[in-house]
């Protein structure tokens, strides 16, 4: 098409590891001009095949490995993993966020409950161990996100629980 063809501009707000950058992408023929917080890069020869993203910036070559999976869009570049989130009010990965202050103690992974340390009415501090969850042969202490009173315990030793299951509910103090 050459650089007299259609030009597309899109504004993205990309977040990697919770760092957000305003990124503008313009397609000019076969090249893309990508501007990150005011710094522009001309990327040419960009293609993705079998999860491998190749592109040039000038003579410098880049090779990244990309996939969309349960963790989000995962990009590996020069040996480092980046987890990408596009900016959007209703993110599809929103359920992975832990809402501090809400008092729900959630299972961060599937596993089996080994120990339940609290019962209804107990006072707990932020960081206190609520349950011990065994996954992959390791015992993981799941702690209270808040200080408060235990309102409900939803599991007992021996239970198999899934990712994100609410194991206990704490009513935050104050």
């Amino acid at each position: 098409m050459g650089d007299r063809g259609w030009q597309l501009t899109v504004q993205l707000s990309l977040s990697i590891d919770n760092v957000e950058r305003k990124v503008t992408l313009e397609k000019k023929g076969d090249t893309y001009v990508i501007t990150v917080e005011g710094r522009s890069y001309v990327a040419s020869g960009a293609s993705i095949s079998d999860g491998v993203l190749n592109f040039f910036v000038g003579k410098k070559t880049f090779r990244a490995f990309v996939s969309k999976n349960i963790l989000g869009t995962q990009i590996t570049l020069n040996g480092r993993d980046y987890f990408l989130r596009g900016h959007d009010g209703e993110e599809e990965t929103g359920e992975r966020f832990h809402y501090v202050g809400d008092g729900a103690v959630e299972a961060p992974m599937p596993g089996s409950i080994v120990v339940v340390n609290v019962k209804q009415g107990d006072q707990v501090n932020r960081g206190d161990t609520v349950v011990v969850l065994e996954a992959m042969k390791m015992q993981n202490e799941i702690t209270s996100p808040v200080q408060g009173t235990v309102q409900q315990v939803n599991c007992e030793p021996g239970d198999q629980v899934g990712f994100g299951d609410v194991l206990a509910e704490i009513k935050p103090e104050g």
Binding site: I16, I34, V36, R39, A43, A46, S47, I48, L77, L84
Partner: peptide, 18 residues
């Protein structure tokens, strides 16, 4: 995560596009 290189965002923009 302060040391995030720009090329990560370049790769990210291209990934989302392509």
């Amino acid at each position: 995560s302060a040391d995030l290189p720009d090329e990560a965002f370049v790769a990210a923009a291209l990934t989302e596009t392509l």
